[in-house]
């Protein structure tokens, strides 16, 4: 049998593209959400990540090694910064919801998304990626509010071996409210904050301007997570 490259390539492309899932689009809370029937909202957070220097774009192993070697002093300094107030987001959300006279329960467990069964819906693009139904059963909830802080620290883009921009303070999180009756997002908000330095950033050992940028990103990020519920 004669082997033809073209159909093989097309077939591979189709298979590979099938593996890429479209990112979840933001979902706004419906205006009358709070007025609708009684709700019991559980609030849970994933593990707060350790602060790091993120160097996306340094793709190959050698690129990563070179990029990391370039930022050893900065990494050392980033280790001294704190994720101030991130762990308190849960308590703040509970406070905001309680002030709205919504029953809100803080779930003490640390949510590990990897341990939840995956969930797929062909018809609903706002279906949650994981099956959260166990929270309804275990805690008698109508909704689950998840705060998943994914990255904290400093972000600097790379193209292989070469940085393509200055480092910036970085906060990355996603917050979502899952309607446990159908496992869909009633609200979904990705938060990506990058705060740059207005002039010089390379000031070892304390990097004052970049440190300021990190804390600016942190505060702006936390505010952004809370904002949807503060209105």
């Amino acid at each position: 049998m004669k082997f033809s490259m073209l159909p093989a390539l097309v077939l591979s492309a189709v298979f590979l593209s099938g593996c890429v899932s479209a990112p979840q689009k933001p979902v706004s809370l419906q205006q009358d959400f709070w007025e609708k029937s009684e709700k019991i909202i559980g609030v849970v957070m994933t593990k707060v990540p350790e602060l790091d220097v993120y160097l996306p774009g340094a793709g190959c192993l050698l690129c990563i090694a070179v990029a990391e070697a370039n930022h050893t002093k900065l990494s050392k300094h980033v280790d001294t910064l704190q994720p101030e107030g991130v762990a308190n987001l849960k308590a703040k959300l509970i406070e905001i919801l309680t002030n709205k006279e919504i029953s809100a329960v803080a779930l003490n467990e640390e949510l590990d998304l990897e341990k939840l069964p995956e969930y797929k819906s062909k018809s609903n693009p706002d279906a949650a990626k994981y099956d959260f139904s166990k929270f309804q059963k275990e805690h008698n909830l109508t909704h689950l509010l998840v705060v998943d802080v994914r990255r904290l620290g400093i972000h600097r883009p790379y193209s292989s071996y070469v940085p393509t921009g200055d480092p910036k303070g970085h906060f990355s999180a996603v917050g979502y409210l899952v309607n446990l009756s159908d496992n869909t997002y009633a609200w979904y908000r990705p938060v990506e904050i990058y705060e740059g330095v207005t002039d010089v950033w390379d000031e070892p050992p304390k990097y004052p301007a970049l440190t300021n940028s990190y804390y600016q990103a942190l505060e702006a990020g936390k505010d952004s997570v809370l904002a949807a519920f503060s209105k």
């Binding site: 070179v66 990029a67 070697a69 370039n70 071996y161 940085p163 200055d166 010089v200 390379d202």
Partner: peptide
């Protein structure tokens, strides 16, 4: 040589010369 260039590139010159 390449690694040196990459290292130097990481230390971008400040936007203003000083502050």
């Amino acid at each position: 040589l390449f690694a040196s260039i990459a290292m130097l590139a990481a230390c971008t010159p400040p936007k203003n010369d000083a502050y």
